[in-house]
Computed example of a mutant assay.
Amino acid sequence: MDKKFVLVDYENIQKIDLSILDDTYSAIIFVGARQNPPKASKHKATAHRFSRVDFHKQD
């Protein structure tokens, strides 16, 4: 099965809903130099929602 990616610029789009995509999709979210990834991605209770997400901080 092929893996599909969704690329997101977090500076332009802060609310992302991956629930409409099936498990073959993953997301790469580019975070600006002056931004931080969403706090929910680091909290134990909500981190599971980000299992298919990789954050890449831009310099």
Rank of each mutant, 00 (worst) to 15 (best):
D2I: 12
K3D: 09
F5T: 13
L7E: 01
V8Q: 07
V8T: 10
V8W: 02
Y10D: 05
Y10I: 04
E11R: 15
E11P: 09
N12W: 02
N12F: 07
N12M: 08
I13E: 11
I13L: 13
K15I: 02
K15V: 01
I16G: 01
D17Q: 02
D17E: 05
D17F: 00
D17A: 07
L18Q: 05
L18F: 12
S19M: 07
S19F: 00
I20N: 10
L21E: 09
D22F: 01
D22C: 10
T24S: 13
Y25H: 15
S26G: 02
I28Q: 00
I28H: 00
I28C: 04
I29K: 05
I29S: 06
I29T: 12
F30L: 10
F30G: 01
V31I: 15
V31P: 03
G32P: 04
G32E: 07
G32S: 09
A33K: 10
R34S: 14
R34Q: 10
Q35W: 14
Q35L: 13
P37Q: 04
P37W: 11
P38S: 08
P38K: 07
A40Q: 14
S41I: 01
S41Q: 02
K42W: 01
H43G: 01
H43K: 12
K44D: 06
K44R: 12
A45F: 09
A45P: 08
A45K: 15
A47G: 03
A47S: 11
H48G: 02
H48R: 05
R49C: 10
R49F: 12
S51P: 00
S51D: 12
R52K: 05
V53A: 04
V53K: 00
D54K: 05
D54A: 09
F55A: 06
F55T: 02
H56N: 06
K57Q: 14
K57D: 06
Q58P: 00
D59V: 01
D59R: 07
D59M: 09
